[in-house]
Design a protein around this nucleic acid. Structure first.
Length: 216
DNA sequence: CCCTGATTCGC
DNA sequence: GCGAATCAGG
């Protein structure tokens, strides 16, 4: 793969937007983040990270870093309440993450899975009242729920910025407060969540398999 | 460990 | 010019 004018332009645009080299590399395809970084340097557009290397002068400005990030809290608080997919690292193409995870999960299982469970985002762990009445808690077994509770306590408490393809993106806590983080445990290959959260996010087709065989 | 960008150097 | 290998910080 070569650096066509088009690809270079995409590179420039994304780099200016504060995208990381690995993100750009994935977007372009056919190149590694090293290639992207190398190209960035050859193009002359460099200064971006304050923590680059010692022995150099102190950077003057750090643009595109903040303006692209602060939407993290907003995006996180808006999405997870409705759907267990905060679309963490793709502000440009929110549909990409969903389109990527959903089919992958449904195809990986038995071809019959659908996002049904909702993350416990709006819930708050209150001492003395750990489990308020929740009639619409889907069809998650008590065992699984206990499993989740235990898992959340062991969460790595990753921030939005630390999420990658291999960190579980299950939101935990209340996005409106700072009691909010992401599970962060290793994901199942090709899936957005860890094994436990995959089991609650992507449930197999409903428990009703009774078919009235009219024929005969 | 995971991530990030920076630099080097053989191609 | 290119980018893998390596380095270095978080």
């Amino acid at each position: 793969m070569s650096w066509t004018d088009e690809r270079v332009e995409t590179l420039k645009k994304m780099w200016a937007e504060g995208k990381s080299a690995s993100q750009i590399a994935k977007e372009l395809g056919g190149v590694t983040r090293n290639a992207v970084i190398g190209k960035v340097h050859r193009l002359g557009l460099s200064n971006r990270t304050p923590a680059g290397k010692p022995g150099e002068e102190a950077p003057a400005a750090k643009p595109a870093e903040d303006p692209a990030r602060p939407s993290a809290a907003a995006a996180a608080r808006a999405e997870p309440a409705a759907r267990p997919d905060p679309a963490p690292a793709e502000p440009t193409r929110p549909a990409a993450a969903a389109a990527q995870s959903a089919p992958a999960a449904s195809g990986a299982t038995n071809g019959a899975a659908q996002p049904v469970a909702q993350p416990p985002a709006p819930r708050r762990p209150v001492p003395g009242q750990p489990l308020p009445p929740q009639p619409s808690q889907s069809e998650i077994s008590e065992e699984t729920r206990a499993n989740l509770a235990a898992l959340e306590k062991r969460a790595r408490k990753l921030t939005l910025l630390q999420l990658t393809e291999r960190t579980c993106k299950w939101p935990i806590g209340d996005p409106a407060t700072d009691d909010f983080w992401f599970c962060g445990h290793p994901t199942q290959p090709g899936k957005p969540y860890c094994e436990t959260h995959v089991s609650v996010a992507l449930q197999p087709m409903s428990s009703r398999r009774d078919r009235r065989s009219s024929s005969r």
